[in-house]
Design a protein around this nucleic acid. Structure first.
Length: 265
DNA sequence: AACCCCCTCAACCGCTTTGGT
DNA sequence: AACCAAAGCGGTTGAGGGGGT
């Protein structure tokens, strides 16, 4: 009794997306918005499963994505958040506008993890490695400490975002204090409620959303800016970006969608 | 030039969570 | 409350590229 596949495997294409497929998906989303991913492939004329379409859009095609490597500041923020949230990549990503969970997860596994190990910090616990070795040797109070970044502990200190990971590797007393805070569900709930509101504000940047202004306030690219990015690819030699598939009509449609004159930038 | 190895990251898989009935 | 479908999430995989020999 295997689990039912997420989609009809027959005739469903897998593997890397072609520019033609990207074009179809971008066209569809920009015209119709994000709705019912399961229906997207059919409506957009794609031989993909809805899940694959959603992933492609959120991780690669979405106009509000930043491109390129994470900056030093972003990297530090990821480390800081990881110390408190653990492997909750989507939560971490929600604090880094324009970055995806997949991107951050990959960057963590390929870069940050190694960096931390190099400077002698355990990427899982965020404790100094030698400290861990010494504490493992004895069955002292250290063993009774709650695991630092386990999924449940994550709730502990979230939102205390002014604290650095170093400050976070606190004393036993601090752990006890944290535990007492964590055991108070009302506090935790209100903390997470705050975060939810923040997240919504960050990502709710559909074309018609008035909250769009928020991103500008934060110095972040707006939906328009990023749609403009797609258009500017044409200016710089869109072929180099692998998006050589927009017809003039489609580019016009894009411009209409974002409602800006790119010459205004 | 040819081969091998390692690294990166896009994409997939399957489990969990959420929302609707 | 129970069930189901859809969406979300995190772990894992594998193709492709770059560097070393």
């Amino acid at each position: 009794m295997g689990r039912q596949p997420c989609c009809d495997k027959l005739g469903v294409k897998k593997g890397p997306w072609t520019t033609e497929e990207d074009k179809k998906l971008i066209n569809f989303i920009l015209t119709n918005g994000q709705c019912c991913w399961r229906a997207v492939p059919k409506l957009a004329g794609l031989r993909r499963c809805g899940k694959s379409c959603r992933l492609r859009w959120t991780n690669y095609l979405r106009p509000d994505l930043k491109r390129g490597l994470l900056t030093e500041a972003e990297e530090q923020l990821v480390i800081d958040l990881h110390a408190r949230l653990g492997n909750r990549w989507s939560k971490i990503a929600s604090r880094l506008p324009g970055r995806t969970d997949n991107e951050i997860k990959n960057h963590w596994n390929t870069h940050i993890k190694k960096k931390l190990l190099k400077i002698g910090i355990d990427p899982v616990t965020h404790e100094p490695l030698n400290k861990q070795v010494s504490s493992q040797g004895s069955s002292s109070a250290a063993e009774n400490l709650p695991p630092k970044a386990s999924n449940d502990d994550v709730l502990n200190s979230d939102e205390n975002s002014s604290t650095s990971p170093a400050e976070n590797s606190s004393s036993y007393e601090d752990s006890i204090l944290m535990d007492s805070i964590c055991s108070d569900e009302s506090i935790i709930n209100s903390l997470w409620l705050d975060e939810t509101l923040l997240n919504d504000a960050l990502w709710d940047i559909a074309p018609n959303n008035a909250d769009n202004i928020n991103n500008k306030d934060m110095g972040l690219p707006t939906w328009e800016d990023n749609c403009a990015w797609l258009l500017e690819c044409q200016d710089f030699g869109i072929h180099d970006f692998g998006i050589n598939c927009f017809s003039e009509i489609e580019l016009n449609a894009l411009q209409q969608t974002i409602g800006v004159d790119k010459k205004g930038h």
